[in-house]
Amino acid sequence: MFLKKIKQALKIDKPNETIPEKPQTISLWEDTGKVFYIENTLKLTYESNGGSITLEKLSMQALPDLINNISLLPENSPLAIKNTANQKSAFNISLCGVTWQKNANATRIKAIPDAALLRSQTACFSKSQAIFRHATLLEHDDLLTSSLIQPKAGQFIYNRITVEQFTQQIKIANKRISEDLRKKVLINQDNFDSPFTEHESEEIERLIDINLQKKIT
């Protein structure tokens, strides 16, 4: 319904109406570099014989056994990982996180989709690669890129990381965050389901409704 409204609003034909350019503003918020990983956003995705599969809200303890069980499925199973020309699809593990930004005496929390990622084409993860990133690096990267390439600032790359090592690193990183900051994190999986905040969604809905009313009249 929301996307339908957007499409209808975009069809409004106003050739004489110009949209004034907004002056560019410089953000005064500075990234602290601290990242807290939301463990209940842990998910596993892979391409199966039956199509793309995403398993969400997984526990870190159950993840290794889950991957092992998937790898042991018969090759003709619809849930088995897809094999094309002897090339298996990759297991992709990811979870979201938050970072803190400061402006003078004020502090705000910013969500980071896919704050940590782990990818491997084998269940043993002997040729895997993990990426832990900061809020300024949200674009998707090929996780199997050679590690000889210099990583970007704020991005940490680890090769040949097992699932157990990956989840352990998450726990270690979270322990470094003070208890006061952790108490302020009121974010879960639902916060990452939409690219907009609740306020932004309400404003978009309001503007769309106004445009639709103009179109009707």
Rank of each mutant, 00 (worst) to 15 (best):
P74S: 05
L186P: 10
S94Q: 10
P78G: 05
P151G: 10
T197H: 02
N76Q: 13
E198S: 12
E47A: 08
A135Y: 13
L181E: 10
C124N: 15
T54Q: 05
F132L: 13
L212S: 10
A153T: 14
S71C: 07
I157S: 12
R182Y: 00
Q101L: 02
I216Q: 14
A111F: 02
S146Y: 08
N83S: 10
I210R: 14
T84M: 10
I149D: 06
I177H: 01
F166Q: 03
I161F: 02
I210S: 10
P23D: 06
D31C: 05
N69H: 13
F91Q: 01
P113T: 00
I12T: 12
K184D: 09
E202C: 11
T54E: 05
L3A: 09
L73C: 03
D190S: 12
P151T: 06
S178Y: 00
K7E: 13
I170E: 03
T217H: 15
L143G: 02
F156D: 07
E75C: 03
L63V: 01
I6A: 14
A104K: 15
F132I: 04
D142K: 15
Q101K: 07
L143R: 15
T122K: 03
K82P: 03
Q165D: 04
V98G: 03
T167D: 03
D13F: 03
